[in-house]
Design a protein around this nucleic acid. Structure first.
Length: 129
DNA sequence: GCGCTGACGCGAT
DNA sequence: CATCGCGCCAGCG
């Protein structure tokens, strides 16, 4: 066999998985659809649950271009519990309303967490205690 | 192929 | 506790 024309990628520390664009897209959408009503999740957390750690901005990108009205996009917030959309914008108001209609307490565009900031991973999943 | 952008995250101030 | 700055990562011109 001929030598490898492809220089070896130094596998010092496992290379981050890079699924195809639509694959990532599907995983992210699937994760968001899995968030139960009345609960919320951060962009970064969605990415992690989708098996795509570090792709919080990709999650945002997907949501920005989403057209599916059935997608519970309103259950996705920033890691600090704040709504990501520009305050006062149409989407912002809509998100507040949708969350409240599910029993989520929203104040000043922010969802109250049950735990300390460090436990967001868990807290975001269960704001209802 | 390069550089800029963005519904982000997190530590520092 | 509010802001700022810098890092990350794909998508897109």
């Amino acid at each position: 066999m001929a030598e490898r024309l492809r220089p070896p990628r130094t596998q010092a520390s496992e290379p981050p998985a890079r699924p195809a664009a639509d694959e990532m897209r599907l995983r992210i959408l699937r994760t968001i659809r899995a968030i139960p009503a009345g609960q919320v999740l951060g962009y970064g957390e969605v990415a992690v649950h989708a098996g795509l750690p570090g792709r919080a901005r990709l999650v945002a990108k997907i949501l920005a271009g989403n057209d599916d009205p059935a997608l519970p996009w309103h259950r996705v917030l920033r890691s600090d519990g704040r709504i990501a959309l520009p305050e006062g914008s149409r989407g912002w108001r809509e998100q507040c309303q949708r969350l409240r209609s599910e029993g989520v307490a929203v104040q000043a565009g922010r969802v109250k967490r049950v735990r300390a900031p460090r436990d967001l991973d868990q807290a975001l999943w269960g704001p209802q205690s």
